[in-house]
Design a protein around this nucleic acid. Sequence first.
DNA 1: ATGGTCGGTATCCGA
Length: 257
Amino acid sequence: MKIATWNINGVNSRIGHVLDWSAKNRPDVLCLQETKCVDARFPLGKLRSAGFEHIAFHGEKAYNGVAILAKYPIEDLQKNFPGDEADALRRLIAATINGVRIVNTYVPHGTAFGTDKFTFKLDWLARLRAYFDDNFDRDDKVLLCGDLNVAPHETDVWNPRLWADKMHFSKPEREALLNVKRWGFVDVFRQMNEEPGEYSWWEYFHHSFEKNRGLRIDHIWTSPALAELCTDCWIDRAPRALEKPSDHAPVVAEFSI
DNA sequence: ATGGTCGGTATCCGA
C-alpha cells in the first residue's frame, strides 16, 4: 500500500500536476492540503477519472482545504476535530482505508511571532496531540500526514542558524510538534533516510529550489505497529521542478499491507 | 540576510 501527502497550493490550479504525478506514481492514497476551494469547485470528476474511486474533501473559499483520494473504500470519515464549530478552518480530514487510520492535516502557518495566529498554531498542535490521546491506540495502524508546517530537527533545515528564530523552526513550534510526536509516532521518513539535505518545501523566490535551500515540513508519521510495516519512504522532488509548481513536493511511504 | 513569488475570484492577503 502506497500512501502519499502533498501540499498542492490550489488543487484547481495544479490539477494537471496531480493527474500526471498520480498516473506515474500510482499511489493507493493521496492526501492533499491547501486545496483552496469550496466543495462545489473541487475537481471530483477529473480525480475519479484518474482512478481514485473514493474521494473525501473538505474545503473553503480561497484558503486551507484538505482531501483524501483513495483507490480503496473510505470508512469512518471525519472532518476537523470532534467538537469543532461548523465554520472552523478546514484543516483536518481523517478516514480509515484498508485498516489504516489516516489523519491528513494542514497545520496553521503561524504568520508572525506574537500574533493571535501564532498562538492559534501552538494551540492547534496541542489539540492535535489531545485528539490522538482521546481517540487512538498506539497498537493500531495509525498514520498522521500532511503539511505540519514545522521542521522538527536541525537536519530538516538548510541553514539551522539562520532559521533558529524564524517561522517553522522556532523553539516553541518545534516543542509543540515534538509533543504531538511523543504520542508515540515514528517519523517513517527518518526511519528510512538519515542523510541531511532532504526537504519537502522550498520558497518560490531566491531560486531556493535550485539551491536546495528548503525545509522538511511535510511529514508521514505512524504508530509503531504501522512503522514496522513500512518498507520505504521518500520525497519526490520531480514535481517541484515543473512549470508552475506547488512550493511543496510529495512525500511517499510504502507499507507491506 | 534579504527580495522576491505564488494562488485566489483578489486589486490585498496569506503563505
